[in-house]
Design a protein around this nucleic acid. Sequence first.
RNA 1: GCCCGGGUGGUGAAAUUGGUAGACACAAGGGACUUAAAAUCCCUCGGAGAUAAUACUCCGUGCCGGUUCGAGUCCGGCCCCGGGCACCA
Length: 813
Amino acid sequence: MGYSHKTIEAKWQKYWSENSTFKSEDESSNKPKYYVLDMFPYPSGAGLHVGHALGYVATDIVARYKRMKGFNVLHPMGWDAFGLPAEQYAIKTGTHPKITTHENVQNFKNQINKLGFSYDWSKEINTTDPDYYRWTQWIFLQLYNKGLAYEEEVNVNWCPELKAVLANEEVVNGKSDIGGHPVVRLPMKQWILKITDYAESLLEGLDDLDWPENIKELQKNWIGKSEGVELSFDVDGFSEKIDVYTTRPDTLFGATYMVLAPEHPLVDKIVSSDRKKSVDDYILETQKKSDFDRTEVNKDKTGVFTGSFAINPFSKEKIEIWIADYVLISYGTGAIMAVPGHDERDWEFANKYNLPIIEVIKGGNVNEAAYTAKGNAKIINSNNEDTITLNDLTVDEGVSKAIDYISKSGIGKATVNYKLRDWLFSRQRYWGEPFPIIHTEAKIETVKENELPVLLPEVDNYKPSDDGKSPLSNINSWVEVRDVNNNIIGLRETNTMPQWAGSCWYFLRFTDPNNSSKAWSKEKENYWMPVDLYIGGQEHAVLHLLYSRFWHHVLFDLGLVSTKEPFKKLYNQGMILGDDGTKMSKSRGNVINPEVIIDEYGADSMRLYEMFMGPLNKSKPWSTKGLQGCYRFVNKLWSIIINENGSLSSRIKEDIEPDNETLFIHNQTIKKIGEDIENLHFNTAVSQLMIYCNHMQKCESLSRELVEELIIIIAPFVPHLSEELWSILGNKNSVSYQNWPSYDESLIQLDNVTIAVQVNGKLRANIEVPKDSKEEDVISEALSLENVEKFTSLGSVVKTIYVQNRLLNFVVK
RNA sequence: GCCCGGGUGGUGAAAUUGGUAGACACAAGGGACUUAAAAUCCCUCGGAGAUAAUACUCCGUGCCGGUUCGAGUCCGGCCCCGGGCACCA
């Protein structure tokens, strides 16, 4: 009887499920805790693909390893099930998203279970479950009560063709991602979360996180902190002042004109009558442009003169005030001082409209291009006896001096700006969490906490209305809130929350998923949080990972959670590409279906191969040939331990003394596998297992004790096979909770070591000497070698470098 | 344009962080077993030269230079690929 992956895998999956093998202990456990989390999936109709599996295999190996190391492991799985595809399917077919979601979840769960993951299914959650979104609504109320949620009229992406409001990420180059229809901007009342209040907190928090540097960098850039100064310019003939934000106050003498964003409130006031028409036309023109057109970098800059002048506070010169759409109303003060000599955008604009350019930083040629050097570049042409002189200072010195002067003279103050914008938190959709909000005539009222959840009602038509309102707005019986006398006292908010909402806190719910009176108990949260290891795709670098950190910071400030940061260590799995090296996609026809692979080669081989392919965080192409190599390995391992007839191989003996080489490899393997798992270097762990297995194959007899230890350390990688071998060896319990074997460091040290002998850095010989030999002994032995002597005799040895137990290098001149 | 990653055999990749480049595997070639095939096992496998020799020599980690006894690894400049951001003053 050979190795039959189908019977073995089905057998142990059933066993694990029936025995609740992977149910974690509660917070009263005396074991240390370890929380290892996957980014929970959106259960799409397409099912699981091999790329999903990559991250899940990695976390599963860590979870299984940590259990064996004596940790109480929380390794849960759930479903991020609100969202667009189910809703669009409903629009097309009339099938309720609840039904679609349920089917997809079943499908995903079946597929996941076939891979032999050790999830604690008693903790399964689903964001669309009222028992779950009740608490999503509850957290929203906490944010609202803290003043972090507000309503505002903002432009949304409206696609007339699809009759749908699209999220920013669903709009690509001004067209809908689906179908490529034009998208226009339409003002609508929206819920906004004040994430900008937490910009500094989110930035600071990054420092202590064990996250990939590039993800931290992405978040830093996204938050986009900039330090500068805000100062006001007097407007000639008006009492109003124009505030600008600049990071380069050292170039103030070079500010030769000003630009206001077309939406700036002062435009109307200061525009001269002869310019009114052209200014109004320009404003109208910009309003028509899409955001895409406005933010296109390479387009020609446009603008018009307002007819008014401002006074440069340093030079006291009169400078023109323009409006132009390259200045954004949403950043800084919505107005800038333009320094064409030293800012590329301003230079381009000044060049086009013949505005004056003054050189105030030495080094470039401002007639040709803006000169943007900073740091130690020298300031020139910046002197006014009545105000300030910056001449001959470096840029850095000039910045400090200018800020100093600006704040002392009362024209402005040092300021910090962030690129981060507040978070548009509502969608005009059906399949999402309803807001616990009621609009009455006078004000906004919140639904009482004990009346949560606000249930999502049944609807007949999932389409948004023509004016872009959510399908919920059509259900009067739900929208209208009545008092006991059946009088309408308010209208429910009909927008729903975006898909990010549920994933902002799911890791907290996993600590206490069945709590019906609270979102989580303090004890459980305190025991399990933070997440020790979080693995998922890099595509969530700034959205999910920033939003959930934001909520967590708020919850921390409210005293509702015990750590400021939710995810201690983050790691991104790479993509698995098709065997042609391109992204797996249906249209390319290079999609690998994990079920087909499991059917033919088994989950154990697939797990092993996905880990063996290369470093976890790299993209790498799939190769079914490569997978076959792992399948061969698994079979080889089986046939070493198990006979043809299915019983234990006679090679395995109770009372044999393993030879030194075997002990060396055995101990080295235990050490390396443990270290590699801790460092997430699964590919090298697998190759070490192969090395060990290749060695075992050559051994005539094997020590039962060592074989048992081997089975334990391979169990995280190939759990089904290990359970089967473990039981054939006569063990009654699951291998999953065996203690991880320890290794003997002294056995990993060999008695003899090979020393590389080099002459002038080139390898000339290898010698084997006893470990820790004396330097002079090694040198004299090396010098006596023919091939070494040949090269040392070409000159005289002027220096000798000796690296203990490793290398000897003669420097000959 | 700016900010991150990354360039090592025919292929996926290793290399204890400055110390024998190519572990482990795939593919390829050769052999054993077999009537044959599959499976399995054994051998070869960066390039060039040389040899009776699996003595040996030279070259080789994207390119050019540097530091060092010694560089895939560190420093400077450049080229290419992947990802992210993009008029943020």
